[in-house]
């Protein structure tokens, strides 16, 4: 009898002690998962392929993200990431109200072209009130107006070898010893041709403010905020990511985030 009590007490003590140290030891012990090339991380990251395939399966190509009403616009669009730019080229454009801005569209296209803001405003218009969801967790509802990216792509003619639309931006999100890292982001042609994917030049009935990415930002409403590149300088149609950054297709994907940000 007494033996049973002692062993039970010892078991209790041991289990409580291990339970108490588990989180302490556990979380630090898992810090190896931060290393990009770690095999365990590489394995876990495959769940994102499952996520993107499932979402692609469940979503038809032009199924829309929820849209809201005017009454839901309760504040100006919150801005994070780059909110002002110091580069000389951008400063010169800004000074003249982006009159000299030309959106360059090139890469794997039949007819490379340049578009001024006036050109873009004379193309088909789409206005949508949508909710912007940041990877950090916050949301903000705003009315976006711009030209469907599809219309721009049709104008230049996408070559059959092209698979992704790459956005090269003006904003230096990071300054390293080897120079500035300009923001870059990409989407596939399914999202590029989605009816809500627009190159927005206005938000809440006003020209796009500097903080929100003037003169032009993309809206990709079925994904998180970091896909919606601001300060777009140039659009390039590409076949793969091998020559882009570290090869994952976007600034944040090169830093451990999912390229597919539907989650």
């Amino acid at each position: 009898m007494s033996k049973v009590i002692i062993s039970r007490r010892a078991l209790l003590r041991a289990s409580l002690a291990s339970a108490a140290t588990l989180p302490l030891a556990g979380c630090k012990a898992l810090d190896f998962l931060r290393e990009r090339e770690n095999a365990m991380r590489q394995f876990m990251i495959r769940a994102n392929t499952l996520t993107s395939r499932t979402q692609r399966l469940l979503l038809s190509a032009d199924q829309l993200a929820p849209e809201f009403s005017e009454a839901d616009i309760r504040q100006s669009q919150f801005a994070n990431g780059s909110t002002d730019l110091s580069g000389a080229e951008y400063a010169a454009l800004k000074e003249k109200n982006f009159d000299a801005y030309r959106l360059q569209v090139g890469g794997l296209v039949e007819r490379p072209a340049e578009f001024s803001l006036a050109d873009l405003r004379n193309m088909p218009v789409r206005t949508q009130i949508t909710r912007h969801d940041c990877v950090e967790g916050w949301s903000c509802i705003a009315k976006w107006q711009g030209v469907p990216l599809c219309a721009v792509l049709n104008r230049v003619g996408v070559k059959p070898t092209a698979r992704y639309v790459m956005f090269h931006c003006f904003d230096a999100i990071e300054r390293t010893l080897s120079g500035e890292v300009l923001y870059y982001e990409s989407i596939d042609l399914i999202d590029a041709r989605h009816p809500q994917t627009i190159l927005a030049y206005a938000v809440n009935d006003r020209p796009l403010p500097i903080a929100n990415g003037a003169p032009l930002r993309v809206r990709v409403e079925r994904q998180l905020g970091y896909k919606m590149a601001k300060y777009i300088a140039r659009i390039e149609l590409i076949a793969d990511f091998s020559r882009i950054g570290n090869g994952h297709g976007s600034y944040w994907a090169d830093r451990g985030y999912e390229w597919f940000a539907g989650i």
Partner: peptide, 18 residues
């Protein structure tokens, strides 16, 4: 001591969570 990983790393937290 209650987060994975133990330092600020949203990207890794999302990999583990999903």
């Amino acid at each position: 001591w209650v987060t994975i990983p133990s330092t600020r790393d949203l990207a890794t937290g999302r990999v583990v969570h999903f």
